[in-house]
């Protein structure tokens, strides 16, 4: 698409690929190009936030003020185990099958 002439290139294609790896996404070359252009456009818009002086402002993470909500850690019965397991893509009995995690040579 357009490559915003006065906009900074904040992320290049290599950086987008690095970020994709962190997010466990395997994006194609074409997608990497498109996403880097889109993300640049958005980041350049977001740069607007730098205009504000927030030196003395505290960050907001919870709108009503953050607080911990405690409850007793108690065991409860749960009768829907089978319904949960029905959603598992590959299972063996009550176990979830996954590819080998630790390779056998280093084990």
């Amino acid at each position: 698409m357009n490559d915003n002439t006065n906009a900074q290139r904040l992320v290049d294609i290599a950086e987008i690929k690095r970020i994709a790896r962190l997010a466990r996404l395997d994006i194609s070359e074409t997608d990497a190009e498109r996403f880097s252009s889109d993300v640049n456009g958005i980041l350049n818009y977001i740069r607007k936030l730098q205009e504000l002086d927030t030196e003395t402002i505290s960050p907001l993470s919870h709108v009503h003020g953050s607080h911990n909500v405690f409850r007793r850690d108690e065991q409860e019965d749960y009768d829907k185990r089978e319904k949960i397991l029905l959603n598992v893509p590959e299972r063996s009995g009550n176990f979830i099958k996954v590819p080998l995690i630790i390779d056998q040579e280093s084990n």
């Binding site: 992320v11 987008i16 970020i19 994709a20 962190l22 997010a23 466990r24 996404l25 395997d26 994006i27 997608d31 996403f35 889109d38 993300v39 958005i42 980041l43």
Partner: peptide, 20 residues
């Protein structure tokens, strides 16, 4: 592969932006 095949473009775009 599961995430790449499962998510649409806008979801990927926001995951990339958020991860960045």
């Amino acid at each position: 592969r599961s995430r790449t095949e499962g998510f649409g473009s806008e979801v990927k775009r926001r995951i990339l932006l958020g991860t960045y």
